[in-house]
Lab assay of single mutants.
Amino acid sequence: MDTYKLILNGKTLKGETTTEAVDAATAEKVFKHYANEHGVHGHWTYDPETKTFTSTE
């Protein structure tokens, strides 16, 4: 398992979190669920070199 990072740049919520996942697709599902639960619906990007997802509203 690898550690993946999420950076949230929402209108009402900003911050970072991490998750352990078997691959990027699994981490993306976890992070999108997390963002949706916190009302963040933004544009998603992923940097495979740093294993970092960013959601920007």
Rank of each mutant, 00 (worst) to 15 (best):
E37P: 01
S55W: 13
A27D: 01
K11W: 09
W44D: 01
K32Y: 06
L13T: 11
P48V: 08
F31P: 00
V30D: 05
K14E: 06
T26N: 07
H41Q: 12
L6M: 04
S55D: 06
K5H: 12
D23I: 02
E20C: 14
I7H: 04
D23M: 02
F31Y: 01
V40C: 04
K51T: 01
H38V: 14
E57M: 05
H33R: 14
A35N: 02
G42D: 03
E16G: 07
H41R: 12
A21E: 03
A21T: 04
T52A: 04
S55I: 15
V40A: 05
T50S: 10
L6W: 04
Y34F: 11
T56Q: 08
V22R: 13
K29W: 07
V40M: 08
A25N: 08
G39T: 03
N36G: 08
K11A: 12
T18Y: 14
T45G: 07
D23Q: 01
V22I: 13
K5C: 09
D23E: 03
E57Q: 05
H38F: 12
K14V: 11
E49F: 11
K14N: 09
G10H: 13
T12M: 12
Y34A: 02
K11M: 13
K14M: 10
T50H: 06
K51N: 05
E37R: 09
T17L: 15
N36I: 14
T18S: 10
H38E: 05
T3F: 07
H41K: 13
G42V: 05
A24Y: 13
E49H: 11
E20F: 12
K51Y: 06
K29Y: 08
G15S: 14
F53G: 00
D2H: 15
T50P: 00
E37N: 09
M1E: 08
Y34W: 12
K29P: 01
K51P: 00
V40F: 15
E57F: 06
P48M: 07
T18W: 14
D47P: 00
W44E: 00
T52R: 02
E28T: 02
T17E: 05
T17A: 11
L8P: 00
V30P: 00
A27L: 01
E20M: 14
H38C: 11
T45H: 10
P48N: 07
T12H: 13
H33Q: 15
T54H: 07
T3Y: 07
T56W: 10
V22G: 09
K32S: 05
K11C: 14
A25D: 09
V22D: 06
L8C: 09
T56A: 07
G10Y: 12
V40Y: 12
G10E: 04
K29L: 11
E57I: 05
T26K: 05
M1P: 08
T52P: 00
A35S: 04
T50K: 07
W44A: 01
A25Q: 11
V30S: 06
T45M: 08
L13D: 05
K29R: 12
K32T: 06
H33W: 11
A21S: 06
K5L: 07
K5G: 03
T18I: 07
V22S: 12
K29I: 12
F31Q: 00
E20V: 14
K51L: 10
F53H: 01
V40S: 04
K5T: 14
Y4P: 04
N36E: 15
L6P: 04
E28I: 07
E49N: 11
K14R: 12
E37W: 07
T19Q: 04
T18L: 08
D2F: 13
G15W: 15
E37S: 12
Y46L: 01
T52M: 03
A35I: 07
L8N: 00
F53M: 00
F31G: 00
V40G: 03
T19W: 08
H43A: 13
H38K: 13
K32E: 05
E28L: 15
T26P: 00
S55P: 02
T12Q: 10
G10I: 05
M1R: 10
H43Q: 14
S55M: 15
H43M: 13
E49T: 11
G39P: 00
A24H: 07
N36M: 14
K51C: 02
D47E: 09
E57K: 03
G15E: 13
K51D: 01
P48I: 07
T17M: 15
E16N: 07
G42N: 03
T3I: 13
T50E: 06
E57R: 02
T26S: 13
G42E: 03
E28F: 15
E20A: 09
N36W: 14
T12Y: 14
E49C: 11
D47V: 05
N36T: 13
A24I: 08
H33F: 11
M1L: 14
F53K: 00
L13E: 08
T50M: 05
H43C: 15
P48L: 06
A25E: 12
K29T: 09
T19L: 14
A24R: 10
T52I: 07
E28R: 06
L13V: 14
K5V: 10
V22A: 13
L8V: 08
L8M: 10
T52D: 00
A25F: 09
L13K: 10
G10T: 09
E16D: 05
E49A: 13
W44C: 03
T52S: 04
E49L: 12
H43R: 12
W44T: 02
V40D: 04
E57D: 07
A24L: 08
G42T: 04
K29Q: 11
F53S: 01
S55V: 15
Y4G: 04
N36L: 14
T17P: 01
F31H: 01
Y46G: 00
T56Y: 08
W44I: 07
V30I: 15
H43T: 14
E20R: 13
S55H: 08
E49P: 08
H41S: 11
I7N: 03
T26D: 10
G39E: 05
E37I: 13
T17F: 15
K14G: 06
V30A: 09
Y34H: 03
M1T: 11
E57S: 05
Y46Q: 00
E16W: 14
G10L: 07
T52K: 02
E28G: 05
T45W: 06
E28Y: 15
Y4V: 03
